[in-house]
Computed example of a mutant assay.
Amino acid sequence: MFITFAQYSILMASQHRVTYSQLKKRTSFDHLMVNYYTMGLLNIGLISASDKEGTDSTYYQLTDEGEICIREYEQANPELVIKSMY
């Protein structure tokens, strides 16, 4: 599957269960970009969303398919690999 650098950035940021605000902080994307790419990645099954019990927070998590896309992207674009800090 072909993904863009922005999609790859969201996937990398969601490798560990994260909230929307954590996605914004980790990617440095604005509200509109995070919404746009998060919704797209949810629709194609590369990330999943779940609510934490007892809170109003939604958490985003990389799926197995998302992990495969990260590997494929990094193999095809080694010069654009993001070193994981999380």
Rank of each mutant, 00 (worst) to 15 (best):
M33R: 12
C69D: 05
R26Y: 07
A6G: 03
D30C: 06
M85V: 12
Q7S: 13
Q75T: 01
M1I: 06
E74L: 06
R26M: 13
L32H: 08
M39V: 13
D30L: 02
E67K: 10
M85W: 09
S21W: 03
L46Y: 08
E53Q: 14
R71K: 15
S9M: 07
A13L: 04
V18T: 15
I44R: 11
Y36W: 01
Q15W: 03
K83R: 15
E72H: 01
I44W: 03
T38A: 10
K83I: 13
I82A: 02
I47N: 10
S9I: 01
I68S: 09
D30K: 08
Y59N: 13
S50P: 08
D64W: 06
K25N: 14
Y73G: 05
N77H: 08
G54Y: 06
T19W: 03
I47S: 02
K24I: 10
T55L: 05
L80G: 00
K52L: 14
E65C: 05
A13H: 09
Y37N: 08
S84I: 10
T19N: 04
K25A: 13
Y60A: 04
G45L: 02
Y73N: 03
R26C: 07
G66Y: 04
L11K: 07
R17N: 14
L41Q: 04
T58A: 03
V34R: 00
R71P: 01
E79R: 12
K24L: 15
M1D: 13
Q75H: 04
A76M: 09
I3F: 11
A76S: 11
P78C: 04
T38M: 07
A76E: 08
S21R: 09
L42K: 15
K25L: 13
R17P: 14
A76G: 12
S28K: 11
G45C: 04
L11R: 07
A49Y: 09
V81N: 02
M12T: 10
Y73E: 01
M1L: 10
L46C: 05
E79H: 06
E79F: 05
D51L: 08
A6H: 11
Y73A: 07
V18E: 15
Y8K: 04
P78D: 01
N43S: 14
I82T: 03
S48I: 02
F5I: 11
T55D: 08
T55W: 03
A6R: 14
L11H: 01
H16N: 15
T58R: 07
V81R: 06
L62C: 03
E53L: 15
Q15Y: 04
D51E: 14
K52Y: 07
G40Q: 11
